[in-house]
C-alpha cells in the first residue's frame, strides 16, 4: 500500500509543480502591481499555441520555445501598458475582473486562429525519465519543479537585493507613496508584467507538453494556480510553491478514495476556500490592499 501512496505522491508533486509555477507568476505580478491576473492561464495557452505554430512552420525547436516566452511577455506587457494603467486606482476586485475580460478575448482569438484539431507539443526532455517510488518521471516534469523552485529563489533574491526589487516592494506597499518618492512606476510595473508573462510562457510550454495542447484546458489552469497563490496569501512565494505542490498531491491522493475520485477537480476550490476562511478569521478583506 505504501508503494501505491508513493506512486500518487510523486504523480501529485509532478502536476503540483505546474500549479506552483503558475501561482508564482501570479504572486509576482500581484505583489508589484496589485493585479490578480485571471488571464494568466490564457497567456500560457497562447504561448503554447504560438510555440506549436512556429514548430509547425518548420522552425528550429529552440526557436519555437523562445517564441513561447516572447508571446507570453508581449501579451502580458500589452495588457500591462495599454489597459492596466487605466485601472491603477480602482479596487483590487475590479482589477481582477478586468483580467477576466482579457482572458475571454484571448480565448476567443485562439479559437479563431486555431480550430479544434489534434495537436502535439513535444519537448526532447519528454523522452528522458527517472524512476521515483515506482513512477517514471520525465525530465520535463523535473524541469517544471526545478523552474518553480528556481523562480522562487531568484525572485526572493531579486526583490531583496536589487534596486528594481526594492522599487517593486515599495510599489506593492503603497503605489501612491512610491510615486511621490520618484519611483518610475510604469517602468517597474512593465518589468513585473514582463517577468510574469515570461513565466506564463514557460508554464504554457511545459503544460502543453505534459498535459495536453488545448487552449481551454491550459487557460483554466489559472484556477489551481490562483488557489496556490491564495495559499501563499497572494504575497509569499515559498508558500505559493508549497501550496501548488500541496494541491497537486491532495488531488492525486483523492484518486485512491473512490467516492471522492470523480470530484478531485474540486480540490483547488476547497483548499482556496478553506484558506480564505482562515485568512478572514481577522477582519480585513482578502483582496483589499488598504483596509
Amino acid at each position: 500500500m505504501l508503494k501505491v501512496y508513493g506512486l500518487f505522491l510523486v504523480s501529485g508533486l509532478a502536476v503540483g509543480s505546474l500549479y506552483a509555477l503558475a501561482g508564482i507568476g501570479l504572486v509576482i505580478l500581484r505583489r508589484s502591481t496589485g493585479f490578480l491576473n485571471f488571464a494568466y492561464g490564457a497567456l500560457a495557452a497562447a504561448a503554447a499555441m504560438v510555440a506549436w505554430q512556429v514548430a509547425d512552420w518548420g522552425a528550429w525547436p529552440p526557436l519555437s520555445w523562445f517564441a513561447a516566452l516572447v508571446a507570453g511577455v508581449v501579451l502580458s506587457v500589452a495588457y500591462g501598458r495599454l489597459v492596466a494603467p487605466a485601472l491603477a486606482w480602482r479596487e483590487p476586485a475590479v482589477k481582477a475582473v478586468a483580467t477576466l475580460g482579457y482572458m475571454l478575448i484571448l480565448l476567443g482569438v485562439m479559437g479563431l486562429i486555431w480550430d479544434d484539431e489534434l495537436r502535439k507539443l513535444s519537448l526532447p526532455t519528454d523522452k528522458i525519465a527517472v524512476t521515483l517510488l515506482g513512477v517514471r518521471v520525465t525530465v520535463t516534469r523535473l524541469i517544471a519543479l526545478g523552474v518553480a523552485v528556481a523562480a522562487v529563489i531568484a525572485m526572493i533574491l531579486y526583490l531583496d537585493r536589487s534596486r528594481m526589487g526594492l522599487n517593486m516592494r515599495a510599489l506593492a506597499d503603497d503605489r501612491d507613496h512610491a510615486a511621490l518618492l520618484g519611483i518610475p512606476i510604469i517602468k517597474v510595473e512593465t518589468l513585473a508584467w514582463g517577468i510574469s508573462g515570461a513565466l506564463a510562457g514557460g508554464t504554457g510550454l511545459l503544460f502543453g507538453s505534459l498535459v495536453r495542447l488545448e487552449p481551454t484546458v491550459i487557460t483554466f489552469m489559472v484556477i489551481p494556480a490562483t488557489a496556490a497563490a491564495i495559499v501563499g496569501r497572494l504575497t509569499s512565494l515559498p508558500m505559493t510553491l508549497l501550496g501548488g505542490l500541496f494541491i497537486g498531491v491532495i488531488e492525486a491522493m483523492l484518486t485512491l478514495y473512490k467516492p471522492l475520485a470523480p470530484l478531485r477537480a474540486m480540490t483547488p476550490f476547497v483548499i482556496a476556500g478553506l484558506m480564505i476562511l482562515w485568512m478572514q478569521r481577522g477582519t480585513s478583506l482578502t483582496f483589499a490592499s488598504k483596509d
Binding site: L7, S11, V15, V211, M221, T255, L256, R264
Partner: peptide
C-alpha cells in the same frame, strides 16, 4: 470518471493501474 478539464491525467492512469 474524471472532470472534463482534469489536468492530472497521470493519476487517472495510476488509478487504472491500482
Amino acid at each position: 470518471l474524471m472532470d472534463p478539464t482534469a489536468v492530472d491525467l497521470n493519476s487517472v492512469y495510476l488509478q487504472a493501474l491500482a
